[in-house]
Structure formats: C-alpha cells, structure tokens
Amino acid sequence: MMRLYAQTASGALFALRTLFDHSGRSIAGVMSIELALILPALALCIICVADLGLGIYRKMQVQSAAQAGAEYAAVHGYDQNGTTNAILAATSYSGVSAAPQPQLYCGCASATGVVAAACGSICASGSAAGQFVQASASATYQTVLAYPLLPKSFALTAQSTVRIK
C-alpha cells in the first residue's frame, strides 16, 4: 500500500513539475500568441506617431516658408513677386502656397502687435508709423489614416511680419 502511495505522489509531483516547467519548449506557443495579439496594436501606434510627426513637420515647413518671405522683405524691401518666390522656394514641400499674397502696410508697433495707421502719421509712442510687410504661407495636410474625432485634413497657415522702414 505504501508503495502505491509513493508512486501516486511521485506521479503528481511529475505532473506539477510539467505544468510549471518554464523551459523554452513549454512557453514558445504562448510567446507566439502574445506577439500575434500585440503586434497589430504596436504597428498601429507606430503608424499614428509617424503620421502625427509628419503633420507637425509639415506645419514647421509652412512656418519656415512664411519666415523666409519676411526675411526676404527685410533684406530686399517690399517686392511682392520676390517675397512670393522666397516663400515657395523656402521648402521642398510642394503643397505650400503664398496665400494670401504678401502685403505692405503702415502701422505702429504695440505690445500686442502692429496697429494699422496712416503712413507718415505719428504713433502714440511719439515715433513715426513704420512700413511693414506681412508674408503668409499656407498648405493642407491630409492624414494617412482616418482617426475618430479628428478631421481627415488640416489647414496649415503661418504669418510673419517684418518692419522694413
């Protein structure tokens, strides 16, 4: 009787060892299943982050194009065609346009920006109104995937203003 009990106990121990054995052979299937479950979610996250990064990069390109137009006006004075060409040539992104066209206007600098004023007038600070050029750039970014609660496309705009006189 004792011998039968010993065989049964050793058989149970063997079954428990086999159940909790962590050798590579017993968990290889589990790892494959985990990978199959996680991989699509991971791939979707990578695509979403890349899409968001590309959208931010496109916005930076639009901002740089507007800044390049203002820099051109600061160096060369107001030249609508030259400023427009500087905006378009500032980036390799073909979707950028110089819209609205660069504008020349007079105004007075204030803490909140430039207040429109008549050319030659005197500002509240006592200085003469200056000439300003406003360069604008715009583009549209289309997302790679359609996201819930977000539009499929975004309008990207930027403006840069510089005093030339």
Results as ranks from 00 to 15, higher is better:
residue 154 F to R: 10
residue 56 I to F: 14
residue 102 P to R: 05
residue 117 A to S: 14
residue 150 L to E: 03
residue 72 Y to V: 06
residue 126 G to W: 13
residue 35 L to H: 05
residue 105 Y to D: 01
residue 72 Y to K: 00
residue 63 Q to K: 07
residue 131 Q to L: 07
residue 110 S to C: 02
residue 117 A to Y: 09
residue 114 V to H: 02
residue 112 T to H: 03
residue 130 G to V: 09
residue 119 C to N: 08
residue 93 Y to S: 06
residue 53 G to F: 12
residue 69 G to C: 11
residue 120 G to Q: 03
residue 87 I to R: 08
residue 118 A to M: 09
residue 31 M to P: 04
residue 18 T to E: 13
residue 136 S to H: 13
residue 41 A to I: 15
residue 107 G to Y: 06
residue 63 Q to V: 13
residue 122 I to M: 11
residue 3 R to V: 12
residue 122 I to V: 14
residue 140 T to N: 11
residue 7 Q to P: 01
residue 64 S to C: 03
residue 134 Q to Y: 04
residue 58 R to Y: 09
residue 106 C to T: 09
residue 87 I to K: 10
residue 50 A to R: 09
residue 84 T to W: 00
residue 8 T to V: 10
residue 103 Q to F: 09
residue 41 A to L: 14
residue 11 G to V: 01
residue 48 C to E: 02
residue 36 A to I: 09
residue 7 Q to Y: 05
residue 148 P to Q: 08
residue 54 L to G: 05
residue 104 L to M: 03
residue 4 L to I: 00
residue 82 G to E: 11
residue 43 A to D: 03
residue 95 G to D: 07
residue 45 C to W: 11
residue 46 I to C: 07
residue 14 F to W: 12
residue 75 V to R: 14
residue 104 L to K: 00
residue 154 F to G: 01
residue 64 S to P: 04
residue 38 I to R: 00
residue 21 D to F: 03
residue 121 S to A: 13
residue 65 A to P: 06
residue 37 L to P: 04
residue 99 A to V: 12
residue 111 A to N: 11
residue 89 A to E: 05
residue 20 F to L: 12
residue 26 S to R: 13
residue 72 Y to W: 04
residue 98 A to N: 01
residue 16 L to G: 09
residue 156 L to F: 00
residue 160 S to G: 09
residue 165 K to L: 05
residue 164 I to M: 13
residue 9 A to G: 07
residue 24 G to H: 04
residue 7 Q to M: 08
residue 102 P to N: 01
residue 73 A to L: 11
